[in-house]
Design a protein around this nucleic acid. Structure first.
Lengths: 251, 251
DNA sequence: CGACTAATTGATACGAATCAAAAGCGGTGG
DNA sequence: CCACCGCTTTTGATTCGTATCAATTAGTCG
């Protein structure tokens, strides 16, 4: 097994009652589907883990036959080119499941942006229980499908959109996540820094920063701090995000 | 059911023996896994279909509870922005399975580049048989995983690579496909036109064209026709494709 | 062989990258 | 509590890769 730098807490000792019953991320997670079943055995097989902020806990190319479900915090998945260029593929939030990769081998790296807590499930165990409980496999496939769908949306953004559209897309997306997970309305809290945003959107930090300034000048947003944004004009921001207007500084 | 413009040939009439036994794409397809089983009933539920070149046979947003497996020809999957900008997500070749999308609703369109023949499988039927034959579901999930993996590689290309790297990536990828499916070694046969290539790589046709010319001048490739390329220096082309050298005209 | 479309080549424009520096911010210690 | 240090973010000046606009050449099909 690879060097996963984290403290693992064996839930066999803890008992799933105490862990899952109070799990805040459950309603976003694949395991939600087993909510009303007596699945101590299955959940007992999971291990509850914490990863410190800044830790790369999955390395590109590594074999690791587990699914990870994020319970708390934010992660970034990324690929790196030989000369150091980094592309962020997605951000993981509570309820994000990962580890679908073929032959149990990851073809990207995952790093904790904030302190993260997650559950680790052996693929073999999940497979075994999926045969008894088809809804479990269905839930996993649904997660996979939405990851694919997200990736295609991202492809469109990277292939065809201007810097302004990219940032608008990102902000609208973060806003939706913020609402779903944390119940925030017009306030966007960004756990990632400008480098992350730029590496996700395929532009530079300078461009991101300038575009933030533009958006604020145009009354689309207000920036309280670098990491706290208020949406002021959702309609226009969403129009930009959807590609309805390419460069125009609509104001 | 949506307006699928194609001629459908019901294999119930034909009998799977005559169709699947001679199916050339089988060894690349998810159904390969059932090769040695008596699955007349399952295969009988498929319908064998032909789609003419240039036909959009799946429309973005359309509900369509079927998997498609391509048997012959090439397709392009794409998304379109309100102002007409098109991003090609991937090209389908024999053995490509599609239709994973959530709630059986596609979030992209698919168009035949050449004349295409394909098999259509009802999701319900596949689901039913997957419970008896877990390897069927596993095969489908493997297809899904490699589609996701491909998409991530594409993300890296679109987010971080120069035009030269993008084209190199594309050519190496097409070469691998050409070898796997059609057994071609250094010759690349491109069923798609320059617009397709540019819409896949997130650059313009003019840039694609100029880069082809550069590559030929540098001895990386020889272009017999626009659609027939010979790889002359695989090492350097692959180095470009992997991002080891960004702009340099190595030569 | 002519008509139409696809691909290439050329000239110029422009959005974003790069290089450079200043300002903001968070944490630490005197 | 404030001064200092390091890191992140913003702003500025300039460069550059690719898009755009325009025209020519090649290729395809009736």
């Amino acid at each position: 097994m690879a060097n996963l730098r984290h403290r693992a807490i064996d839930t066999n000792a803890l008992n799933h009652e105490t862990v899952c019953k109070t799990c805040w991320a459950r309603r976003f997670s694949f395991c939600e589907t087993l909510h009303n079943k007596n699945m101590d055995e299955f959940f007992g097989s999971a291990s509850y883990t914490k990863v410190d902020s800044g830790t790369v806990f999955i390395h590109d190319g590594e074999k690791f036959p587990f699914y990870f479900n994020i319970n708390k915090g934010t992660t970034r998945s990324f690929k790196i080119l030989p000369d150091g260029r980094r592309q962020i593929l997605n951000f993981g939030v509570p309820g994000t499941l990962t580890g679908f990769s073929e032959h149990a081998s990851f073809d990207f790296s995952i790093e904790a942006i904030t302190d993260v807590s997650l559950c680790r499930f052996s693929k073999d165990k999940v497979d075994f229980y999926s045969n008894k409980h088809p809804e479990l496999r269905k839930a996993i496939m649904d997660k996979m499908v939405s990851e694919l769908s997200d990736s295609y949306a991202h492809t469109l953004v990277l292939g065809k959109m201007s810097a302004r559209e990219r940032l608008a897309f990102f902000l609208i997306k973060q806003n939706k996540i913020g609402f779903k997970i944390y119940g925030q309305m017009n306030k966007i809290t960004l756990p990632m820094n400008r480098y992350d945003i730029s590496d996700y959107l395929g532009v530079t930090t300078e461009t991101i920063s300038r575009t933030f300034t533009q958006f604020e000048a145009e009354g689309l947003i207000t920036s309280l701090k670098a990491s706290e944004i208020i949406i002021r004009d959702r309609r226009r921001l969403a129009a930009l995000a959807s590609g309805a207007i390419r460069f125009a500084t609509i104001g």
